[in-house]
Amino acid sequence: MNPFLILSRGGDAGPYQAFPDLCRLRNGELYCVFYAGYGHVSLPDSGKGWPQGGRICAVRSRDEGKTWSAPVTIFDDALDNRDPHVAQLKDGSLVCSFFSLKPGTGGRPYDGVGTQLIRSTDGGKTWEKEAKVVAPPGWYVSAPVRQLPDKTCLLGLYFFGGAGNEYGGVIRSTDSGRTWSAPIPIAESQKLPLDAETDVIRLRDGVLLAALRSSKINLHFATSHDSGKSWGPACDSGFKGHAPHFTRLKTGEILLTHRLPNTALHVSRDDARTWEGPLEIDNVIGAYPSTVELNDGSILVVYYTEGEGSHVRAKRFRLTPKGPEFLSI
């Protein structure tokens, strides 16, 4: 048995729902944000019934993922707001990171406006009405804010300036995400094709590990020994993976979910020295998977299906020595 649950499809969130991200709130609820539009890119189009373009929606569960609320829009301005990720910080606030696209100039179909953040101080019931640009145009995001034990916040970014000018990066904050450093590049000088979708995790010895996507070569890793202020070279992971997402389990294993092959998972049981996988979660290719450990030690993973009628799915599994054992939700 390998069942899935549909968190959101169609309805008020539209015909294309993608790029979900999941976190657990302090009150025990699960909170999932995702992109809602009419297609993979949803620029403002009144003729299609989307005068504001794509928007960010959210659903929540109060019973460990068994049932979910109807989608609500948490942010929608006159741009294509997309690829949202959410985290709750130590001060209790929620931060949602995303980027937006606007109609392009100079023959380009669209242009980016930079990496953006909005904040909620009431558990995601209400959100800031205006997004703060925290990294300039050219920098994009596909990861949640990660907070270190000393409360420093890191946000994985990537720079896309066209073929041959792609690399990862991070920004840092020491005031709970209210102000941020300039982008700190990762692997800029290596000239690797890293359309990076960078995510970051802290290892047991304090070293930071960044995962960096490539659409042409394998996923790469890079490390930092100074809380993200500087980074070593990007090194081949030995496997492919898009949209990497890290989760450390209470038992110590690190989950690295990603796209390719299909929706997949790698597991490290030795603090990122070696990886098992790929282990297939689902045979759909949309992916952008995100995981949360449930109270019983099982794992809930959310992801999406690409194409017509795309929707947000969830599966539940338990990690065993042989890999994931899928369970009913």
Rank of each mutant, 00 (worst) to 15 (best):
Q88G: 10
P233W: 01
I285H: 14
K250R: 15
Q88D: 09
F4E: 14
G92L: 00
R273E: 12
Y167W: 11
S142F: 08
H245P: 11
G28Y: 09
S93Y: 08
I217V: 15
C153E: 11
P136E: 04
D150I: 08
D77V: 12
A131T: 09
I184T: 12
F19H: 12
R172I: 08
Q17D: 02
C96A: 15
D111S: 03
R60M: 10
K229F: 15
L319H: 04
P109D: 12
N2A: 14
A13H: 07
S215N: 13
S290Q: 00
D91E: 08
L212C: 14
G286P: 07
L260K: 07
Y31Q: 06
R204P: 11
D226Y: 00
G37S: 06
I254W: 01
G124M: 05
S61A: 05
L117K: 04
I184Y: 11
R248V: 04
S215Q: 10
P84A: 04
P149M: 01
D63V: 10
F159H: 11
I254L: 15
E280Y: 06
N262F: 13
R204N: 13
C23N: 03
G309V: 02
T247G: 13
E253Q: 09
T115K: 03
T198K: 07
L219A: 13
I281S: 08
E197V: 07
P136W: 01
T174A: 13
I254C: 13
N165G: 06
L79K: 09
G232E: 10
Y16T: 03
R213N: 05
G106F: 00
A211P: 07
S230K: 02
R24I: 12
G252Y: 05
E276C: 12
A78T: 02
K66P: 03
R172Q: 14
W50F: 15
S100I: 04
